[in-house]
Design a protein around this nucleic acid. Sequence first.
DNA 1: TTGCGTGCAAAGGTTTTGCATGGCA
DNA 2: TGCCATGCAAAACCTTTGCACGCAA
Lengths: 136, 136
Amino acid sequence: MKSEYKTKPRNLIIEYLKDNADTRFTARDILNAVKDKGDGLDRSTVYRNLERLCTEGKLIKYKEADVNASCYQYSEEHESCREHMHAQCSVCGKIFHLDNSIFKSAAKKMMTEYGIEIDYGKSVIMCVCEECREDS
Amino acid sequence: MKSEYKTKPRNLIIEYLKDNADTRFTARDILNAVKDKGDGLDRSTVYRNLERLCTEGKLIKYKEADVNASCYQYSEEHESCREHMHAQCSVCGKIFHLDNSIFKSAAKKMMTEYGIEIDYGKSVIMCVCEECREDS
DNA sequence: TTGCGTGCAAAGGTTTTGCATGGCA
DNA sequence: TGCCATGCAAAACCTTTGCACGCAA
């Protein structure tokens, strides 16, 4: 891993991530937010930084059926997002970090019945959260 | 729903779907496959047909983190792919249709611990299948 | 004949890449 | 000074759309 320099663009991006922890956002969201603050930032810089953060495991990258762009999600509390499963509300997009123990029984059955082994870090279960159920 | 015409391009696409049931593919995969067979087919025709098949519920459309293009999946046997969960091998892309009963315990815990309700039809659990585990 | 489907071309959006410049350590 | 990161521009992709033409029923 290359050493890392602290630069203004990078700080702006990190700042955005911290302000938007546990929600989904796209590269464009970051660009717009930074622009609204009066700062400038180039697309390629955003993409390169997001890419790096993903490689370092600090960020999750995924795609949603209804969204053209890649979505990202950052979480300060969860260092090991590659090791547990996530659930996402298909209405509001909120993300939940699921404890692997929940799937103990399911994992066993998936292995015996289908011969497959869960890849927890890459799995996202779609769901509807409490708030969104109440709203409807 | 408009009435449906049987055309050569549409047949080529359907043929591809049947030859590639239960695997993921992109619009480009279809274009390439058809081109390799010596036939011609336009991008827009492929997209329009895939769109229609999705609307009719005969095809599932989804996106993967590592793949830029939309992925599709067709299954002859499973009419109700919107009602059960799927698992996909992150190595070879093979898709498995999971019986919802497997998640009985997990679903209960997700509800009590996180207040979330699984959306089976939209969920895809990433996994590694038996063959791919043996290969590595 | 009617109207649906196709091919073509163009456009819009996302993401990547090469390169020279600028800035951190 | 020596790298690393940035900005800019261009290009590569994916996907959608308008339109005229062709073809199935």
